[in-house]
Amino acid sequence: MNIFRLAGDMTHLASVLVLLLKIHTIKSCAGVSLKTQELYALVFATRYLDIFTDFISLYNTVMKLIFLGSSFSIVWYIRRHKIVRRSYDKDQDTFRHYFLVLPCLLLALVIHEKFTFREVMWAFSLYLEAVAILPQLVLLQRTRNIDNLTGQYVFLLGAYRALYILNWIYRYFTEPHFVHWITWIAGLVQTLLYADFFYYYFESWKNNVKLQLPA
C-alpha cells in the first residue's frame, strides 16, 4: 500500500468519524443529507459483496466493516433516533434517490468488466459513489449556515477522493498492468464534483469567514 492510498483511507475514515461524532455528541444532524447517507450505505452494500468470501487482508476487511457499519448507523440515527431525527432538514433535503440510482444501474448494465452479478454491482457501486455526494452538496447550498463539522465532513470526503487519484497515478507507474478505466473515470468525475466546494471552502478559510455556498 502506498502513502497516498493510506492517507486517502484515513481521510475517508476521518470524514465518517467527524460525522458520527457530530451526530452522536451534539445529537444533531442539521445540514446532513439523509439521501447522501442512504446512497453511501447502498454503495458499500453493493461493493463489498465479497467481504465474507474473498479475504484480501485484515486491514481491508476491518475497513469494509467500518464503512458498512458507519453508513448504516448514520442512516439509523437520522431516521430512528428520537432526538437526532428532529434536527433533520427534511424539507430541504429533497433530492430524489431514483434520479441517481436508476441511471447508475443502467450504466452498470451496459459498462462493466464482466457480465456477472458481482461485477455489475461493483460497477454500479462506483458510478453511484461518484454522484452520491450531490444531495449533500445541494443541501449545503440551500443551508445558509453551514456548521464547521458538516463543512469538514465534506472537505475530508473530497480530500479522500483526491488522494485516491494520486494513489492510482502512483500504482499505474509502479505496478505492472494496473489499468482500471471504470474506477478511474468514475473517481475522476466524483472528485470534480468537489471542485466548486473546495474553492469556497479555501476562500472562507483564507478570509477567516464562515463557509457559505452561493445559491
Binding site: H12, I56, N167, H177, V179, H180
Partner: peptide, 10 residues
C-alpha cells in the same frame, strides 16, 4: 491478477 488489485481498494 488484476481482479485482486482492483478489489484491494475500498
Amino acid at each position: 491478477d488484476s481482479n485482486i488489485d482492483k478489489k484491494d481498494e475500498l
